[in-house]
Design a protein around this nucleic acid. Structure first.
Lengths: 221, 221
DNA sequence: TCCAGTTATAAACATTTGTTTGAAATTTAG
DNA sequence: CTAAATTTCAAACAAATGTTTATAACTGGA
């Protein structure tokens, strides 16, 4: 119960605090005191604060990439050499994301961490995630390409990031938004509700008509 | 040339550094040394680091809200008591955003700051922006409501934030994304290009079919 | 010219940060 | 049981942070 308990307690506490306040704004002392662990434990078990941050991500991303790869395997097996429909791909990604935190803490934390990975400086984090988990994303985008052959490559690239932005932005800022929504519309929204709402929006966005003036001339806004 | 010069140089330097590294990650010493200004100047002219952050935002948001209000005035005058079409509203917002930094530094900085305002902890910032500039957003959403009467209120609320996420996420992470895009598609993308690409996507997303199972029962993902 | 009022400057202040140290406690293995 | 390895702990470290202070420099108007 000894060594693993300390490591786990640090990770559990750190992920919540990071999600709430960001990385730079969360000190090791805040983490260790809240986790009821000695200050030096972080450097002993993880080496540095940077490595702790990466470890927090790995604990979510490792199971996610594994599940997601497996799910994509099944899809490919089922569809053979036909292109997998866009809706199926999006559904698969959504359910892979949703399944992971079910067996651990909270989906909210996972989403918020993803948002931070983009928005916070932390160059080391982006590098780490890219190197460690970039291949799943590459595989996924290749499948999306087959599902949307009518889109020019560059247009699809940008639209994917538009949608990535929708998802991460909304889900990672969920708490603040939920407060407003609850006050105005008297409904309590869960992450799963939002994913349901996101689906038709994302599909429609990906299939929006491609503007004629693509690469050329700068016209009015 | 004396007093204003120092204030301006601090703001010019601070906005760039904030946009690059975030607020907590940018120290006053970094700002003042790069701005060739005494360390104490920030506290003398602005009072505190928090106030400096707010001042950086005000310098963009003040002209923006003024222009945007004016543009909405014109739209309302033109359309009388008819609802303003969604496309016109989105265009107006886009051009208001684009016009502001044209007369100052860079659009990129403005977008990145908006992204930070959401993602960084900085509770005081969110409060400040909400109190100072919340009314424009309220006015805008009211007009969007008239433009999309078929949408349930809550659905529109969330879709607006989905789209806000697309825009802020993409534009504020533009530098990193542009590097990838340039490498893969050999095209240099400007913010204006992206706004052009965003328009049909946002319109399609807002007009996506509303799922039948809206408020009730939790089904499969 | 001279004197308020404003601005600039260097130095110091008190905190907070991540990390390291060396000894104590605990666990593991033979 | 005992010796080695692992883990915990309190304390200290050096560096960096935002802010304050007291003095100097400068400014524009009488």
């Amino acid at each position: 119960m000894a060594q693993n308990d300390t490591v786990t307690r640090i990770l559990d506490t750190a992920e919540v605090l990071f999600a709430e306040r960001g990385f730079a704004e969360t000190s090791l002392r805040t983490i260790t005191s809240k986790a009821k662990v000695n200050l030096a434990a972080v450097n002993y078990h993880f080496g540095s604060k940077k490595s702790l941050i990466q470890a927090v991500f790995a604990r979510y991303l490792d199971p996610f990439t594994e599940r997601f790869h497996r799910a994509l395997d099944e899809l490919e097996a089922h569809y053979g050499d036909q292109a997998i429909p866009l809706e199926r791909l999006l559904e698969t990604m959504a359910s892979s994301v949703l399944e992971v935190p079910a067996e651990r803490n909270s989906l909210k934390v996972f989403m918020r961490l993803l948002g931070l990975a983009y928005s916070q400086a932390q160059g080391h984090l982006r590098r780490y995630i890219q190197e460690e988990y970039g291949s799943v994303f590459t595989r996924f985008t290749a499948l999306i390409r087959q599902a949307t052959p009518e889109l020019p490559d560059s247009e699809r690239f940008w639209r994917l990031h538009f949608m990535l932005g929708s998802v991460i932005f909304t889900l990672s800022g969920l708490d603040a938004l939920r407060d407003i929504a609850e006050k105005d519309y008297a409904e309590h929204v869960t992450v799963r509700d939002l994913v349901r709402r996101l689906r038709p929006v994302v599909v429609a966005a990906m299939q929006a008509p491609v503007p004629a003036h693509l690469s050329s001339a700068s016209q009015e806004v």
